[in-house]
Design a protein around this nucleic acid. Structure first.
Length: 201
DNA sequence: CATTTGATGTTCT
DNA sequence: GAACATCAAATGC
């Protein structure tokens, strides 16, 4: 097996947009409670930058109880409750006090398919099971309890399995659902795998 | 099919 | 009270 867990050298680099692009094709894994390991290939991400990005919760140094995790040094999980229902999973990047993060928007299930299906109350493995930020967290059993978890030494982590992705297979487009961010909403900070059925609509 | 609506925690006004 | 990094179920063609 040629899997390598991503470490601080990956997460703590300063360019969150580049990290977001490189995360496409990596494998997000979780091992919750007594359940088997569940994992999936990341096929869609979005970059959020703490400085000068109106779409980010922590824009311009805004600190709340919820966003405090984003100010930690890169390599931890920032998980937050959206619309009171959905747990959204982000990877915190950059150094301490720089609130950058990458939102994982969609995965393609790899390991622990039965567990994923049972969490999602689905019978067949097809895109609605894990295409979408609220769906993938449910599929992997990720909840806000795990916010602040260390991605290098905990029950959630990201592996590089040397899945080869060509630069030309990744497309960058404007982010989703952030129209309120004005001109910043048009930044092409969403990265997705071309020709994948597992990218959210 | 497309469009609307209900669910509902955290944060801001 | 309103808005929000969403989803699923109900309703209208």
């Amino acid at each position: 097996m040629d899997a390598k867990k991503l470490d601080y050298n990956f997460y703590q680099r300063p360019d969150v947009v580049q990290i977001a692009e490189e995360l496409v094709g990596k494998v997000l894994c979780s091992q919750i409670g007594d359940a088997p390991v569940t994992s999936g290939i990341i096929v869609e991400t979005e970059a959020y930058c703490g400085r000068n990005d109106k779409a980010c919760h922590a824009n311009n140094g805004l600190r709340t109880d919820r966003t405090e995790t984003m100010y930690q040094a890169g390599g931890v999980a920032y998980i937050y409750l959206c619309y009171g229902i959905h747990h959204l999973f982000n990877v915190v990047t950059n150094e301490k006090d720089k609130a950058d993060a990458v939102l994982i928007r969609a995965i393609q299930p790899l390991d622990g398919i039965d567990t994923i299906l049972s969490r999602r109350k689905a019978e067949k493995i097809r895109p609605p099971v894990s295409a979408g930020p609220g769906r993938l967290t449910q599929a992997l059993g990720i909840t806000t309890d795990l916010s602040g978890a260390n991605l290098t030494d905990s029950i959630i982590w990201i592996e590089d399995r040397n899945i080869s992705i060509k630069d030309t297979d990744i497309k960058s487009t404007p982010r989703i659902g952030v129209d309120y961010a004005g001109e910043h909403a048009n930044r092409p900070w969403r990265f997705s795998l071309k020709n994948s059925d597992w990218v959210s609509q």
